[in-house]
Design a protein around this nucleic acid. Structure first.
Lengths: 199, 199
DNA sequence: TTTGAATGTTACAGACCGGTCACAGCCTGT
DNA sequence: ACAGGCTGTGACCGGTCTGTAACATTCAAA
């Protein structure tokens, strides 16, 4: 009963966020109600509303948490290959979509951006901030690795990974998304050769 | 009153599909009810249900219609640059995301794939079919243009455009999505040079 | 003119939703 | 032992949703 133990030990707020992220991912933001989330988290609707003022705020909190997790992953790559941006880049390419094999539901943040239609939704700024940070870290690695067109390469890789996670949801494992690693490596190689010739 | 005239002349089924596509695009699939669609189409819920057995079937019909429109666009490029795949490719790159400037809601089909969580939803096969056809036509152009790595280039461009339309919804005009044309052209150029050197 | 199919209208069923209230319990720090 | 904050419980409100039933209307073809 280690799971139930952990459930009862962690404060309700954390359990609710974790459970909400699971259910949102599985059924979509509009596909699951706050009551179901609270119950699945071993709590109830009232405490949910005492921690998060509304469902929309809960969604924003979940995406903030997702952004924190992503940043942690970047930090781990930083620590794994210190001062070796080229290996960091290859590691990123390898990991960026690999998770999709088990759970083909793509990126929670991108999915939320698509599912949320209100322009003033509290989650919108979280989405923009996390995604911008992602591109910025990618651009920094490309610059550190010495690519002359580092910014353009960062844009290319950003679009590729974003597209791969969508492609996985549209056509599944037969689609272009499953060739993301080959494509990304080819693009990186092409940009590297371009740089060499320019020098 | 040509618009109202057209509304009353066209059969209800077509009006409903057209209206549904607009509203689905604006508010999401789950963000608008069948009653609102029927009323906005100048019809009513009952006739809607007589033409489409369920809301899910209506969604599938809307995506089928979207797929037909996309195919028509490809045919126009074919007719505009007959036997000139390189220009067809450039035209595709220019048009693929340009529409996003006015309406940043991305691709209806990809959005639907993300919003639909049921694996057996009637729209799923439509989504997969349309997206596969898109990649196939792109691959054919790349092959006709003589790219040695035509399949890989088609995958790259597919992922890029898919990612661009998502990026537009996450970070807006400041994001990588607005650099799609530059990125895609750079990737095409890199693949072309690769081919030359390989020859 | 009559017939019949397509369409419109109204009402309803049953379920779910987000959000709030009043009240009861628990558990910790003092 | 006691006080106070956090948590749990169940009921409730008003609204919306998909889908159906029964009935009225229009309109074109025969």
């Amino acid at each position: 009963m280690s799971k139930e133990d952990a459930m009862s030990r962690t404060p309700p707020r954390d359990r609710i966020i974790e459970t909400a992220r699971e259910l949102f991912r599985k059924h979509g933001l509009r596909g699951v109600g706050v009551d179901a989330i609270a119950e699945a988290a071993g709590s109830n609707k009232m405490t949910l509303y005492r921690h998060f003022g509304s469902k929309d705020d809960l969604i924003a909190a979940c995406l903030t948490e997702a952004g924190k997790e992503a940043a942690q992953e970047w930090d781990e790559w930083d620590a794994e290959f210190p001062d070796d941006p080229m290996n960091q880049l290859h590691e990123w390419i390898g990991c960026a979509v690999s998770c999709a094999i088990e759970d083909p539901r793509g990126c929670d943040i991108a999915n939320a951006a698509i599912e949320i239609t209100e322009p003033d939704h509290p989650a919108r700024k979280v989405i923009a901030q996390v995604k911008s940070a992602h591109r910025d870290r990618l651009a920094r690695i490309c610059r550190d690795a010495g690519f002359p067109d580092a910014e353009l390469l960062a844009d290319a890789l950003t679009l590729l990974v974003e597209g791969a996670r969508v492609s996985w949801q549209t056509v599944g494992p037969q689609g272009s998304g499953s060739r993301f690693v080959s494509v990304a490596e080819a693009v990186v190689a092409a940009f590297a050769e371009r740089g060499k010739r320019a020098v």
